[in-house]
Amino acid sequence: MIGPDDIPYLPRGVRLHFDRVRDTWVLLAPERAITLDQVGQAILAEIDGARSFGVITQALAAKYNAPAEEIAKDSAGFLGALKDRRFLELQP
């Protein structure tokens, strides 16, 4: 499970892309892609490879005016699923 001190980043070859045909955000990786909803896109937009997961969840909590605990739980599950699929890595 991703922790507050972990620093997530998108590995080389993975990028956010707005797909105009589907009218939705997609996360592209070589030969693979997943579609994102607005919340998923908002989480990934905060990931810069420098800020920790704890800092990111605080920023999202302020942006959405929602409890940081709920955001941390949902975001950790989401990012964990992306990490399992190799769409995301954590800084060593």
Binding site: R32, A33, T35, L36, G40, A66, E70, D74
Partner: peptide, 12 residues
């Protein structure tokens, strides 16, 4: 926009 649990869908 309200917070909701994010969903992902794989493009086959």
């Amino acid at each position: 926009m309200a917070w909701s649990k994010p969903q992902i869908r794989e493009i086959e």
